[in-house]
């Protein structure tokens, strides 16, 4: 079912991680990604893993939820691993067995390395979205990227578009489920036939979905106008953010981990 996708979902809560300032969380996630890509060897993952462990422990959201979400990405993970194994160099892993000659030590090591990196990457960014409401997230982006306005990048408009997209994703997912069932009730078959047939079978779903999205957009535009929306000019914000001790603790931990990894790279 479409409803099982957990990536990008927000789980409301009141944990330490939930209460971090979204701007800080965004910054921490950026630093986390940088650190992750700097990691030189498996020991580095221990540092990142420990950091991630803290996040899991202090967010109140169990790893199980994340791994359910991972299932839908298994393809990408397997794909990456496959290519790393295929194109990895080094000595054969099993020198005695000739038909396993393509399995080289270096390749397997690389594949493992990449898998861990991807999983940690997904974990880190997932926990950002799990613990931060999408509105707060776009808010934080709008604020962090405000300087870009100087470059004539419409930061407010982009943020508003993202907020609305995020708000309507669950609604449109529900709608898609309903349309699929309605067409199934008229005997539509989405499960058999070759690719062309299956692609064509999507038309009865996509067209109603598009029409519904347009209708909703029109009504939403009216509703926004009625509530005095007139662009970013002169707007105040409901969410006021201020850094607390939590943010500084989190930042300190992140910087410590990052320094450790940089040290690993140097030595």
């Amino acid at each position: 079912m479409l409803k099982d996708v957990t990536i990008g979902q927000f789980f409301p809560g009141n944990s330490f991680v939930h209460r971090l300032d979204p701007r800080m969380k965004l910054l921490l996630t950026l630093l986390y990604v940088v650190a992750l890509f700097l990691v030189p060897d498996f020991w580095g993952f221990l540092v990142i893993g420990a950091l991630m462990g803290l996040v899991v422990a202090f967010s109140g959201i169990s790893l199980r939820v994340v791994f359910r979400g991972l299932k839908s990405l298994i393809f990408i993970i397997v794909f990456t691993a496959f290519f790393n194994i295929l194109y990895g160099g080094g000595e054969p892993l099993f020198p005695g067995i000739s038909w396993l000659g393509w399995l080289k030590a270096e390749g397997v090591r690389n594949a493992l390395f990449m898998i861990i990196r991807i999983i940690l990457l997904i974990l880190g960014t997932s926990y950002l979205t799990y613990t931060t409401s999408p509105v707060m997230l776009t808010d934080a982006m709008e604020r962090l990227f405000r300087p870009l306005k100087v470059l004539r990048i419409p930061v407010h408009e982009l943020a508003m578009m993202m907020t609305i997209a995020l708000r309507f994703i669950p609604t449109l997912i529900d709608e898609t489920d309903k349309i699929i069932n309605a067409q199934k009730a008229r005997g539509a078959d989405f499960e058999t036939g070759n690719i062309v047939r299956r692609a064509r079978a999507l038309v009865p779903i996509l067209i109603p979905l598009l029409i519904s999205a347009f209708r909703r957009a029109e009504e939403l535009a009216d509703a926004m106008e009625c509530r005095c929306y007139h662009g970013g000019e002169g707007r105040t914000r409901y969410k006021v953010y201020s850094f607390s001790w939590r943010d500084w603790v989190a930042l300190a931990l992140m910087l410590a981990a990052l320094s450790l990894i940089i040290l690993m790279v140097i030595f």
Partner: peptide, 20 residues
């Protein structure tokens, strides 16, 4: 079950949303 879809016709709420 496929035959059932034709034996039992189901009209969902707001069925006009399925027109395409």
């Amino acid at each position: 079950r496929i035959q059932t879809r034709f034996d039992v016709g189901l009209v969902f709420q707001y069925p006009e949303h399925q027109l395409f």
